[in-house]
Every structure is written in structure tokens, then in C-alpha cells.
Design a protein around this nucleic acid. Structure first.
Length: 430
RNA sequence: GGAGAGGUGGCCGAGCGGUCGAAGGCAGCUGCCUGCUAAGCAGUUGUAGGGGUAACACUCUACCGGGGGUUCGAAUCCCCCCCUCUCCGCCA
């Protein structure tokens, strides 16, 4: 959510910045609602002040046991105050309505992009930031992970469909082990080398948490709601982990707070029919190790660079070629002020595919979720929140299969993972 | 699922219709004092939203788990809900 005071004073600028995301947003309604609310507030507060002072008088008069004069006077005041109270009550209702209207409006307004974000319409306008690694040369047309995984007997798409339908997967044997190895490896790397604290959050959350991070109210159709229960399955660990500090005031010295969390993620993928229908790329359920940070506003962009490089380190250690893209204004997510995507090279598809998305949300989520910190000796301020995949586990598994495939259909296990695979060096058929 | 207890400021803990944003203690901050990390004395210390200011100051309103109600007036009375704790039962 955007800062109301910022909007009051910079409405035109805010509109311009939001327009760069594509699709102009008319903020004139904000002005209307905000002014209406403040007018009602003024009237109600003036009446409350009166009620408070007169009530005090009445109390005093009643106590001063003296004559009936006071008693009479008090009686008149009483009658007047009944009217005042009734008016306050109806004003309070109007105010609550106005506040809800204003809030509902603001909850649908996306974040304003940071000045360093390239302007553009869609993914084609994203800007390459750096490239790492050299795609391997193959003496034959490299296979896609679906073929490799099927032939090796480690990915069973048919039975996954039998169990759960399209966009689910069933891993077996070395495939299942590899997925588990990747989760452990990533968590170990981020906790031991990058200083994150491991957390294992609930996989179901209340609706308010999703409002906090920005998935609700606008993107309800992407989420799995649990029928007969007031919770949703999490679409990413970002939701429970960011909300860990909801309605808290953190000490400045404690920042940045850095968490790494493994969770499954559940997404309806509404509107992606026909995209990536084969294989593990786009699933209703997938595993991810997520990195989440809480930072001071001053340091949040440095923290974004660090977080991104922490995620890149996973690919480096696995020796998987990748590139980093700065998302343009038109391609960024709703809550983000700036996002880098990390894209891993997939030889089977012959292209780079997103494997991580690292964002700084500035105070957008913090304001929604009430996450603040106390600057030394000052008033509480909203923190900046950041997060990024470190990494999407299923897609990493895909990248390993495709990049390290051999002509005989086997797959070499990256060195760093072998301890997690019971020493296995190569995934072979059978 | 059954039986009890309780939710008050950073923490502990009083208050049980008006003078309560809320005693007291702890912690924190600021002075003073004492030559030595301690103790003592005095003062101070919540959050949000209006108004106001160049910015302070100042001022008003709200907040005692959440939501309703009674009342001129509620932390205090009534109703509903949520949460926590203890005991019993059941269970991964």
C-alpha cells in the first residue's frame, strides 16, 4: 500500500510513476475519499471533545451534593448530550465506511517503481545485467528434462496425473532424492555461508497475511482457498515468512533480519493454459527455498544486491549457466519496487528460464502488514521488505538434468550435491 | 470433545461506572550524587489519526484481546467471538 501522506502531496507524480507500469491508474478517487474522510473526522472529533468535557461537568455536578439547581442543570445537559451521542454514533459509522472505501481503493493500487527500474512494456524490455557461465556444447540435440526424467524412471508424469491431474509431478528414486538434496544444499548454503536463519513456517495462512504481502485482494484467482476453513495454501514462503513480524516494532540493531525457508508452493496458474504444459516447469505444487529480509530503508537496495547474489551463488556452486535480468516497469509484480530475475540456461529448450525472482518491496508490504522498526531514539518507521527465490527447487532439478545430461541418457550429479546424494556421481537408468 | 483459569503500557502487575493513558514495580532514557562495574535521589519514557508548524512546540481524538450493547460518561456493567494456560479424553 502506498503512503497516504505521499499521495496527498504528490498525486500527479504518483500517477505518472504508476502509469509506467502500463495501464494508467486514476487516483482522483483517492483525493475525493481522503477529503471526505477528514471532513467527517473533524466533525466527529469536535463533538467527542464536547461530550468528554460536558460529561466531566455532569459528573462533578452530581457529586456536589448541594442543591437542586445543579441537579436541574445536569438534567438539561443530559438531554443535550443524548443528541450529541446519537450524532457521534452516526458519524462514526460514516467514518468507518469512508475509511473502508479508501482502504479498499488503495489495496488495489500497485507499488511505484524505483527510479533505477528500466521503463518498458513487457518481458521483451527487461534489461540483461550480467551473464555467468558457458552453456555446454552437445554433440547431439540435447533432450528436455521430461524425456530424460521419463527414460531414467525418476519422473513419472502419468501416475502424477492419475493421482492429482495435470501440473503435478511424481518423483521417484534418484529424482526424489535429488529434490531433497537440493533443498538441503540450498538451506545449508544460505544459513552457513550467507547468514540467514532457517525457518519452517506453516503452509496454510489466514487471508490477512496474503493481504499483507499483496496477493490479496487483487489476485484471489491464483490461490487455493481451503473450503470450510479460513485459510489459503501458501503460493510462496514469502507470505508466512514476511508476516512473521506483522504488527511488530523491530530494533534497528537487529536489522537486517534474514530468513531462509523451504516450503512447497501452491498456485492455480489461472490464465497460463497452454504454457509449459509438459514437465516440471509450471506446477500447481512445487518446492522452493525462499530468502526473506527486513531492512532499514537506507540499506534496502544494498540488501537487494546481496540477496540476488546469494541466490546466484547456488547456481555458481552447481555450475549452472545463468543470466540476471532487471525487470522493466511493465513486467514487475504488483508489490515490487524493483526486481531482478535470475534465469538459468536450459539446453533442452535452448533458452534461459526464470529460476529466481528477487525483489525489494520497500515499505509497500510493511505498511500493509504493520512491520516497523525503531530508528535509534526516533519514532517507529516502516521497514523495507525483500525476498527472492534461493532457488525454485523443481526448476533447478530440471536445469541439472538438462545441463549435465550425457549422450547415453545418464546425468552427472554436480560435485557439491554428491554428499547429499549418498555419494552418487551419476544418475543412471534402473 | 469435557472441566476450569485468564487476556491491561517493553515486561510484571493494580484498577472493577466519572478526577484512568491508566497506581506500583522492573527495564530504558536524562540529570544529580558517590573517586573506582554497584547503590541512592529527582525527572522522564506508548501507538495511531486529525488540527497546527518551515520544522519543533502545542492541541484534539482514539486505543486496557476483537466486535456489538447499556449510559451524559466504560478498562470497569451486559452479549457474541477469538486467543492463551491447566486438568481429563482422543490422536500424528
Amino acid at each position: 500500500m502506498l503512503d497516504i501522506k505521499y499521495l496527498r502531496e504528490n498525486l500527479a507524480e504518483a500517477e505518472k510513476r504508476l502509469a509506467s507500469r502500463g495501464g494508467a491508474i486514476d487516483l482522483s478517487r483517492f483525493k475525493l475519499l481522503d477529503e471526505k474522510r477528514r471532513e467527517l473526522l473533524k466533525e466527529a472529533e469536535a463533538l467527542k471533545e464536547k461530550r468528554n468535557s460536558v460529561s466531566l461537568e455532569i459528573g462533578k455536578l452530581k457529586k456536589s451534593v448541594s442543591g437542586s439547581m445543579e441537579g436541574k442543570e445536569a438534567g438539561e445537559m443530559l438531554a443535550e448530550m443524548q443528541g450529541v451521542s446519537a450524532r457521534i454514533k452516526s458519524l462514526d459509522e460514516l467514518i468507518a465506511g469512508a475509511e473502508k472505501e479508501l482502504n479498499d481503493f488503495l489495496l488495489f493500487i500497485p507499488n511505484t517503481p524505483h527510479a533505477s527500474v528500466p521503463t518498458g512494456n513487457d518481458a521483451n524490455d527487461n534489461v540483461p545485467v550480467r551473464l555467468w557461465g558457458e552453456p555446454a556444447k552437445f554433440s547431439y540435440p540435447p533432450l528436455e528434462h521430461t524425456e530424460l526424467g521419463g527414460a531414467l524412471g525418476i519422473i513419472d508424469t502419468e501416475r502424477a496425473g492419475k493421482l492429482s491431474g495435470a501440473r503435478f509431478s511424481l518423483l521417484k528414486g534418484a529424482g526424489a532424492r535429488l529434490e531433497r538434496a537440493l533443498i538441503s544444499f540450498m538451506l545449508d548454503l544460505h544459513t552457513a555461508k550467507h547468514g540467514y536463519t532457517e525457518v519452517l513456517p506453516p503452509f496454510m495462512v489466514k487471508a490477512e497475511m496474503l493481504v499483507g504481502t499483496g496477493q490479496l485482494p487483487k489476485f484471489e484467482e491464483d490461490l487455493f482457498k481451503i473450503e470450510g476453513w479460513p485459510s489459503y495454501l501458501i503460493p510462496t514462503a514469502e507470505v508466512p515468512v514476511t508476516n512473521i513480524h506483522r504488527d511488530e516494532i523491530l530494533e534497528e540493531d537487529a536489522l537486517p533480519v534474514c530468513y531462509a525457508a523451504y516450503t512447497p508452493c501452491f498456485r492455480k496458474e489461472a490464465g497460463s493454459y497452454g504454457k509449459d504444459v509438459k514437465g516440471l516447469i509450471r506446477q500447481h505444487q512445487f518446492n522452493k527455498v525462499e530468502l526473506v529480509k527486513f531492512s532499514t530503508p537506507e540499506k534496502s537496495y544494498d540488501e537487494l544486491e546481496k540477496l540476488t547474489s546469494d541466490a546466484e551463488e547456488v547456481l555458481k556452486q552447481l555450475n549452472l549457466p545463468y543470466r540476471v535480468m532487471a525487470l522493466c516497469t511493465g513486467d514487475m509484480g504488483f508489490s515490487s519496487a524493483k526486481t531482478y530475475d535470475i534465469e538459468v540456461w536450459l539446453p533442452g529448450q535452448g533458452k534461459y528460464r526464470e529460476i529466481s525472482s528477487c525483489s525489494n518491496f520497500e515499505d509497500f508490504q510493511a505498511r500493509r502488514a504493520g512491520i516497523r522498526y525503531r530508528p535509534k531514539g526516533g519514532k517507529p518507521k516502516f521497514v523495507h521488505t525483500l525476498n527472492g527465490s534461493g532457488l525454485a527447487v523443481g526448476r533447478t532439478l530440471v536445469a541439472i538434468l538438462e545441463n549435465f545430461q550425457q549422450e547415453d541418457g545418464s546425468v552427472i550429479v554436480p560435485d557439491i550435491l554428491r554428499p547429499y546424494m549418498g555419494g552418487m556421481e551419476r544418475i543412471k537408468r534402473g
